[in-house]
């Protein structure tokens, strides 16, 4: 299993990378951590003419504090996101979800930005990004722009990135001190999520002041469970509130059907996992 031949470019700046992509045309592929791309190339499900490797662009890695947001470089590895103190303090949901991605070897190479740009509906970082109202900073031939997570994810493996665009960094608004849990359901170790629920809540004086719930693999893109959020906010942080709110987890969803699960089963999982996720978040 050897990839088809391709031209390889490893630019050292984002500007050069954008230019390389523009020059190479639509059959170019961006290589971030490569943990999804290389298996796809090996199985020859894709055969790009040019691969643009972002691995030598130092400005794309690292996490920094920007006042009201934590800014995560697109090429920051899952391993580094998991251990980053800023992510822990201000976006705990993201750390919890990243803990569940694939396996340790993949987390050493795979990147936050690569995972978002790949936009696999079963990917574990899309729903947390949506739930935390993350913003994508994108550079293309026309300069930089910022796109909300809600606009970024468009369909199966499809984002608002144009072929010559690079996802540079992700701005995650601070959710300082919010409790969080990512509850994932899969059949075997290292399998993709059949359904997963990203939950983060802020409690105040025994009741739930704010809540954000994102669902993984309940549509072609990540979705917010707004009915659950509304049913949690302002109510006591207890088992009855969680049980009643979780009943709304599948409201308005029309999940896809695959070999793992049909619509009813996915909707059932969404409710059960939402209950577990919120409860686990509250327990800590």
């Amino acid at each position: 299993m050897i990839p088809a031949p391709f031209d390889y470019v490893a630019p050292s700046t984002v500007d050069e990378a954008v230019r390389a992509l523009a020059d190479a045309g639509e059959d170019a592929k961006v290589l971030a951590g490569g943990q999804s791309l290389l298996p796809v190339l090996r199985m020859r499900l894709a055969a790009p003419t040019t691969v643009v490797d972002l691995g030598k662009i130092g400005e794309l890695t690292g996490v920094r504090d920007e006042g009201d947001a934590v800014v995560i470089g697109a090429m920051t590895t899952h391993y580094d996101v998991q251990r980053d103190p800023l992510v822990h303090d201000h976006a705990l949901l993201l750390a919890r979800a990243t803990d569940t991605v694939a396996d340790p070897q993949v987390r050493h190479r795979g990147t936050f930005g690569g995972s978002l740009a790949h936009a696999d509906p079963a990917g574990d970082l899309l729903a947390p990004a949506l739930a935390l109202d993350a913003e994508m900073v994108i550079q293309g031939t026309g300069g930089r722009r910022t796109v909300s997570a809600a606009e970024f994810f468009q369909d199966f493996f499809t984002t608002s990135l144009a072929p010559e665009d690079i996802l540079v960094e992700v701005r995650v608004p601070k959710h300082t001190g919010w409790a969080a849990h990512y509850e994932k359901f899969n059949r075997v170790a290292q399998a993709w999520s059949m359904v997963a629920v990203a939950a983060t809540v802020r409690a105040e004086g025994g009741s739930i002041a704010e809540a954000r719930i994102g669902l993984t693999n309940m549509a072609s893109i990540p979705v917010r469970a707004t009915a659950v959020e509304q049913a949690l906010v302002g109510r006591p942080a207890d088992a009855e509130t969680i049980r009643a709110a979780a009943e709304h987890a599948a409201d308005g969803t029309s999940p896809t059907v695959d070999g793992n699960a049909d619509v009813e089963y996915r909707q059932h999982l969404a409710k059960v996992l939402t209950g577990r996720a919120v409860e686990a978040a509250m327990v800590g």
């Binding site: 290589l31 490569g34 290389l38 090996r42 070897q105 190479r109 290292q190």
Partner: peptide
Amino acid sequence: TSNCGACTVHLNGQSVKSCSVL
């Protein structure tokens, strides 16, 4: 498929699946 991990080596001090690195 990149699942099995038999090809694991250390690259710059971290374990990686060497079938998933160029």
